[in-house]
Design a protein around this nucleic acid. Structure first.
Lengths: 171, 171
DNA sequence: CACAAACTTCACGACTTCGTGAAGCGTATT
DNA sequence: AATACGCTTCACGAAGTCGTGAAGTTTGTG
């Protein structure tokens, strides 16, 4: 009977994976990396072989291969190697996961800023188009600074939240 | 001779449009809306008919039709109607353009948060996966608050920048 | 009232992208 | 040293998406 419960858990897990992956895709992530990230985040284990992920998500090992490479490249997954085994282990280093995720986002924002700054150079600030571009560039810079600041403040804020809740539960 | 210069300007403009549109696409925007937005932002006029955009970008009116509808829907473009003409006018209300753009982004972030919160409900916080999800949710909330705050501060910051530069040029 | 212009909608063709299946390669076991 | 296992790469088939061309609709003009 315990199997039935486990299978139910697995189904709810996979449903959530699909739902969360959809949001990630809308934010620009490719489908398979989105699924792998969602799965690694929500499943209870904290280290997975490629085979684990393939079986857990019920997709081909080939799909996993590409997905984890992309995730490793952007720093959302870390590849580890246990001596005496032939499988790589992928671990979701959740301690600074989202700070790292946001760092990638900040790089994107930087590219925005560069592209717009290039446009300002090309068009000059003495024309309406150039002025709009310049203001856009300033906004990007402002926003990027604000986000970088928030990312930096996050660890302390997280610890504060944890302490607060720990105290609340204890009381 | 002025024609040659104008054509050169037009070419540099279109090159910039392509470059900036590419960045916008990487951020999740559809190709044609990205081009239209980049063009409307960088070109010197501040109101365009659909025909202006089609000719300016050298694409079919049909492509413009879908693109402007999407841009109007997310609030990046405003549709206006001059009495006594048969064309709608699309204006890029640049005063609060980026605040509005960020509001849409904040909505996306809210969907993130909702999806993750749903996962926390499904999985419970007494399991490693659920705990990771809960921390993710908290991070999303924290980041969203920081971004909302930044968006709110932007108008004042922009005016401050403008005043500063105006003074700098004068000195 | 008829005509003309502009935009919109629709359906098609081209392109890109995604995930699978099969073959190849590296690595530990025996 | 040979074998078996797991991952990776490659090429293919399928699905979704994008922009064009043509027809239809609405709106202003003569």
């Amino acid at each position: 009977m315990s199997t039935a419960g486990d299978e139910g858990d697995r189904m709810t897990l996979l449903r959530f994976v699909e739902r969360f992956a959809l949001v990630l895709r809308e934010a620009g992530m490719a489908p398979m990396p989105a699924r792998v990230l969602a799965y690694a985040l929500a499943d209870d284990s904290d280290r997975y072989t490629a085979g684990d992920l393939a079986r857990g998500l019920d997709v081909s090992p080939a799909a996993i291969s590409g997905a984890v490479r992309q995730l490793v490249q952007v720093g959302l997954l870390v590849r580890e190697r246990e001596p005496g085994t032939r499988s790589d282990l992928y671990v979701l280093d959740d301690r600074d996961l989202w700070s790292r995720f946001m760092s990638a986002e900040l790089a994107t924002l930087q590219r925005f800023e560069d592209a717009v700054a290039g446009g300002v150079e090309l068009l000059g600030q003495d024309r309406p188009g150039g002025r709009r571009l310049a203001e856009t560039r300033d906004f990007m810079a402002f926003l990027r600074a604000a986000m970088a600041d928030a990312v930096q403040r996050w660890p302390a804020e997280r610890d504060r939240l944890a302490a607060e809740r720990g105290a609340g539960v204890g009381a």
